[in-house]
């Protein structure tokens, strides 16, 4: 699914001051591309991802993802867009602690009105694919960081969205596990052809899977290269 940003800016009010998070960003990502986004803390990487995930609105500019004009969506349409178009993976996993791995993966399917049997089948299939079959009944607290992130990835893929956004998915993991998670994301991209936007500091480890590298600095794209 194509992504197109035109003159996108995002400013956050901070007391009386206004802090720019993104400034006049123009970006085009063709469908199926794996894009690695890097930059220092506060450079605007996460803001960019949040805008593309329709979890926030730009202060100025236009964001178009496939048929969706994100800057014009109602709250209800934003939710529908997030549900069907975007799979999001967070640094802090954001799993629901009271639910099992299976329950967490079923959640998007439940929200989408799948029957209990259908969603159970789909969630089990995804967890098996992630190598977590024997951990499916465990709650997040009983899983390792890597396992939790794999559950979060399975959840992001539950409704088979065309776009996968990963916001520093290895930020809370050791280098060995981080490497496995990046490899997993690479494998998903390769096998499904989804558009992937990956924000990470682990450029070296992610480099083998990516074709394009974008560097942000002070809210602006300062580097955009194909590798």
């Amino acid at each position: 699914m194509d992504i197109r940003l035109r003159g996108v800016s995002k400013y956050y009010p901070m007391g009386r001051a206004v802090v720019p998070a993104l400034r006049h960003v123009d970006l085009e990502v063709p469908s199926g591309q794996f894009v690695l986004i890097r930059g220092r803390s506060g450079s605007g990487k996460s803001t960019l991802l949040h805008l593309i995930a329709a979890m926030d609105r730009p202060t100025a500019g236009e964001i178009v993802v496939g048929p969706w004009k994100l800057d014009r969506l109602s709250v209800q349409e934003q939710a529908r867009y997030r549900r069907h178009t975007v799979g999001i993976v967070f640094q802090h996993f954001h799993l629901i602690p009271s639910m099992s791995a299976l329950g967490n993966v079923e959640l998007p399917l439940l929200l989408d009105g799948w029957s209990p049997r259908e969603r159970r089948r789909r969630a089990e299939m995804l967890l098996e694919w992630m190598g977590l079959w024997d951990r499916r009944t465990h709650r997040p607290v009983e899983l390792s960081g890597g396992e939790q992130q794999r559950v979060a990835i399975a959840r992001a893929l539950a409704l088979d969205p065309p776009l996968l956004l990963a916001d520093e998915p290895t930020g809370n993991l050791d280098s060995q596990t981080a490497s496995e998670i990046l490899a997993l994301i690479g494998r998903i991209h390769r096998e499904s052809g989804k558009t992937v936007l990956l924000v990470t500091h682990d450029v070296q480890q992610a480099a083998p899977f990516t074709r394009r590298l974008i560097r942000l600095q002070d809210g602006e794209i300062v580097e955009d290269v194909l590798v």
Binding site: A53, M55, V75, Q76, A79, R80, Y81, R82, R83, H84, I88, H94, L95, I96, L107, P108, L111, D112, R155, L159
Partner: peptide
Amino acid sequence: GILKALGAYE
């Protein structure tokens, strides 16, 4: 917040 991020309607 998680539910809403996953696409839950208000």
